[in-house]
């Protein structure tokens, strides 16, 4: 494995509920390599989003630490960008201004070059002056991905970013994300509760148990992109993940 990039050391999180501590995450140890694509898979409420928020610096762990490049995470950092499910882009700003958010300190010619390139990369050329309200859900999410990529982050945290999209848009967003990940060499931690999504995207799937969230197992996905969703290997991994989640695969 490549050099460790994001390392969770005994991370636990308790929430206060009715005056008593409620364990949400318990002793999570995980090392994500540089440039790796890891999916955090688990049932709703298992604490996987909380883990991502801790890594992103938005919440502090009750015990344990998260280190990035060996440094403990103290708070949010523009080198590691969060992509939210419920559209973190600003509805009051045009596509262009949204993508330029993290480039405020650069010269305007630099900004111009990077914003233009990034908008083109996510396929939104021609929509620079459009406001998010006029865009579809998939396009809004592209704006958010572009805003994140514009600052050339070394880590992307994605919290069910395609959860609000229809299933066809979701599929095409996934393949675009893979394309971008391959060209940018960025480390991605991707939270999902969708088994298929995790197999289509991740190099390793980290499966969480129900609350309090613990790592149940880590399943490698050794399939080349583009992945054949009908292959027997895909089916085997899927069965294994469903087994770990404790759900029967047939309906």
């Amino acid at each position: 494995m490549s050099r460790p990039k994001v390392v969770f050391e005994g991370v636990s999180k308790d929430f206060e509920k009715d005056g008593a501590p409620l364990a949400v995450l318990q002793d999570v140890d995980l090392s994500v390599g540089e440039g790796e694509f890891v999916c955090l898979l688990g049932p709703s409420g298992c604490g996987k989003s909380t883990l991502l928020n801790i890594a992103g610096g938005f919440e502090a762990p009750t015990r344990g630490t998260v280190r990035i490049d060996g440094e403990p995470v103290q708070g949010p950092d523009a080198r590691r960008v969060f992509v939210f499910q419920e559209y973190g882009i600003f509805p009051w700003a045009s596509v262009w201004d949204n993508v330029a958010l993290g480039l405020r300190h650069l010269s305007s010619s630099e900004q111009h070059r990077i914003v233009g390139e990034t908008i083109e990369m996510v396929g939104l050329s021609g929509f620079e002056r459009t406001y998010p309200m006029e865009l579809s859900g998939g396009m809004k999410q592209r704006v958010e991905v572009a805003r994140a990529l514009a600052v050339s982050p070394d880590v992307l945290y994605m919290d069910e970013p395609f959860g609000a999209l229809d299933s066809l848009t979701r599929l095409s967003m996934r393949s675009e994300l893979i394309r971008i990940w391959k060209s940018r060499k960025v480390t991605i931690l991707f939270v999902t509760h969708d088994v298929d999504e995790s197999i289509q995207l991740a190099e390793r799937v980290v499966v969480f148990s129900e609350r309090p969230g613990k790592i149940a197992d880590i399943v490698p996905v050794d399939l080349e992109h583009p992945r054949d969703l009908g292959s027997p290997e895909y089916g085997q991994i899927k069965n294994r993940l469903y087994g770990l989640l404790g759900v029967s695969h047939s309906v």
């Binding site: 938005f58 949010p76 939210f84 973190g88 600003f90 958010l101 993290g102």
Partner: peptide, 14 residues
């Protein structure tokens, strides 16, 4: 102001 917008601002150091 929604939490995601506040967090976006913090994330990008605004």
């Amino acid at each position: 102001i929604s939490l995601v917008h506040q967090r976006s601002a913090r994330n990008f150091g605004v």
